[in-house]
Design a protein around this nucleic acid. Structure first.
Lengths: 112, 112
DNA sequence: CATGCATATGAGTGAATGCTGATATTATAT
DNA sequence: ATATAATATCAGCATTCACTCATATGCATG
């Protein structure tokens, strides 16, 4: 086991990855990435049950990845740091690199 | 079809986050990020047991985040896509508001 | 061959996680 | 005060996960 006494920030990074490492939570993050949305919005956008959405929102709140703003009976969720979506996009580009990408294609044919 | 493609990309992205969402595995990724290393190297660098390192390496292999090269009795592990470390660094900068956690980590474990 | 080193695998276990159904809370309107 | 809509929380369950111990495999050398 690694030394955990020192908070090197890696723990927090790992916790963040763990929170994002769920299909439903990642979907919620994407839904609220551009504009803040109410819980009902998220329910409709994802098709998840109200309880399940609330369950995952709590996890995202605890990880401080999202923040809330109350407006009457509605609670709007948004990314705590909007830049988060940028780095997630970067990640997606690296992980899901498509074979049909021009760059990839050129690399492939240049290898014979 | 476009939506389905995007969805499968999210699944893979979520799986990748999940694999990286473990402190020990993230540590291993950082250890091999610059140069390929043998299992023994990783054991010494992290202080984890041989079995635990092998256990996590299997998870990283299954996620295709790392690849192996055999050299006699040694097996060298390296990142399948070296760019992965760049995006992890980006992530770290956004999540923790400081730079070069990897540097701190490597310094920390080398003092062990 | 046998021995030793490097690494992987399998079974088992306790803990964490994702999910659900029921219930509670909060806000608005009648 | 009652009703209703929006959202959160709790308790329980099934599954996954991280971990360890023991054992197996592969590779080199005597």
């Amino acid at each position: 086991m690694l030394i955990k006494t020192m908070d090197s920030g890696i723990e927090k990074l790992a916790r963040t990855f763990k929170v994002l490492g769920d299909y439903n939570r990642l979907g919620i993050v994407m839904v609220i990435s551009r504009v803040s949305r109410t819980v009902t919005d998220i329910i409709n956008a994802t098709g998840m049950s109200q309880t399940l959405v609330s369950f995952h929102l709590r996890a995202l709140r605890r990880a401080e990845l999202v923040t809330t703003r109350r407006e009457g009976p509605f609670i709007y969720y948004s990314l705590t740091n909007p830049s988060l979506m940028d780095v997630i996009d970067n990640f997606s580009m690296i992980i899901n690199k498509k074979v049909s990408d021009k760059k990839n294609f050129l690399e492939t044919i240049s290898r014979g």
